[in-house]
Design a protein around this nucleic acid. Structure first.
Lengths: 253, 253
DNA sequence: CGTCGGATTGAAGATACTCAACATGAGTGG
DNA sequence: CCACTCATGTTGAGTATCTTCAATCCGACG
């Protein structure tokens, strides 16, 4: 029988015998055992290889201020740990072993081969979906570990950055044509409580929300309240080139 | 200048002039305008083509029971709507226009070309990351729209299914060697409240948690409490073949 | 036998929810 | 042009879920 990854992937794709064999062999490589609590991957690090969980249990998690911690996903045997750390430039969260966990290290060359097989376009699309996942994880942190204030501030700050990236926001304001009810649906709160929290932020002079447009009156403070750390958006360019984009959003990160 | 998608993707990948042109042209195709509130994609549907948001604002969301609704992400110009609906067999959530939204329909042939360029392996990996995203979205729903009971039940049920898929669980129990504190970190609750909720579930005879192993004593009822709908795990096979896997987890979905 | 991580329980308090009334403002039809 | 309606936003009061803090218990392990 093949490994558990093959088993899982075959849920969806039918492999040719050759492909199947290739995939099975992928994980026949070096293995490493991690002790409970040990870091498998650290935030900020670029993954040098791809790891497959063979046995045990691991978790994607992020350490927040004041010792709070958010586990965003559990990784069980058959799961890949760090595709995003390999495709992107750095992990935006930690991966820790919950119990003793054995991982197989997929051969770098094999995975490289996979990546070079793709066109730049495919790779870019992959980057896009991975970044989207990172945004989803941030939303989990919002709703799991941040209170109403922080949650709304974080979402607003993120939207500011995202609008800046595509050139649709100036330094401190962007179009956000949603109702408070929709904001409530997005933040997992009731419309009433969104309203109260918003008017708090308004009377504090932090934001203005008029004509479907959000203006951040004190960008640094908003960032601070949101405890915003932009690396999960993966906007740092790896290559030199026009600094146009960095100009557009760089100072916000 | 190119379109906003190109602009966004160039954050990360440097395109050759040819690739850049190809990508720019991708979105020069038919456009469609959606009215506020209109469904752009419906849960359960397979996407026939890929849509790019050109202007306006859209949202990924899921309608839950009792009129509750969870918005999991906002889509702004430059974002792709439905890569997962294209790569996977069906969307696991809706995409609705928040305001009037214009989308460009990427030419099917072009995108098909992209997909056929990939090896089955690459495609399988893509499936894997997309499914992972879907799990993340479900966690957002957990923490945004479900109370402590439902949240824990949903996570447990999901773990049961996932363990079944890789053949590490029998019909109603699976290894889950985590502490209540870790469960708290994963569900966004305090350890104390996790404990109380768990003991409730235990005394009701719904679950048993002993020796790092969870046993579901009343699987259908757990599923009901969790309001579990397994399509987000994308386990339905599209092709005929050994029904081995369906056997392993199919009855749970 | 003592220690330590984890589980359990109690009591008090806070954040966020529910229900419900009321305000505002844009759009519609008389 | 005004009255009406409907969606959205605002405010108040009572309540509940969940948190915080703290004590206690339990089982594994040296």
């Amino acid at each position: 029988m093949g490994n558990l990854l093959t088993k899982k992937l075959e849920q969806f794709v039918r492999f040719s015998p050759a492909e199947r064999q290739r995939l099975d062999q992928l994980a026949e490589k070096r293995r490493k055992t991690y002790a409970p609590g040990e870091l498998i991957f650290k935030e900020g690090k670029k993954a040098e290889f791809v790891l497959l969980v063979v046995s045990g249990l691991a978790a994607r998690c992020k350490i927040l201020s004041e010792g709070r911690r958010q586990i965003m996903a559990f990784l069980i045997p058959g799961d890949l740990c760090d595709v995003e750390g390999f495709v992107l430039n750095a992990m935006d969260h930690d991966i820790v072993a919950v119990t003793e966990t054995v991982c197989a290290q997929l051969a770098v060359a094999d995975v490289e081969e996979l990546l070079t097989e793709m066109s730049a376009l495919t790779r870019a699309l992959w980057w896009s979906t991975m970044t989207e996942s990172a945004v989803l994880r941030e939303r989990i942190i919002d709703q799991g570990s941040r209170d109403a204030r922080e949650r709304i501030c974080h979402l607003l700050y993120e939207m500011l950055v995202r609008y800046r990236v595509v050139g649709l926001a100036n330094s401190h304001s962007f179009p956000f044509p949603i109702t408070q009810e929709q904001l409530a649906d997005a933040t997992g709160m009731t419309p009433v409580h969104v309203n109260r929290t918003l008017s708090e932020l308004k009377t504090e002079g932090l934001i203005r929300w008029k004509d479907k447009t959000v203006s951040i009156l004190d960008v640094p403070r908003l960032k601070e309240i949101a405890q915003f750390d932009g690396c999960y958006l993966h906007l740092e360019r790896t290559f030199q080139g026009d600094a146009e984009v960095a100009e557009r959003a760089g100072d916000l990160l």
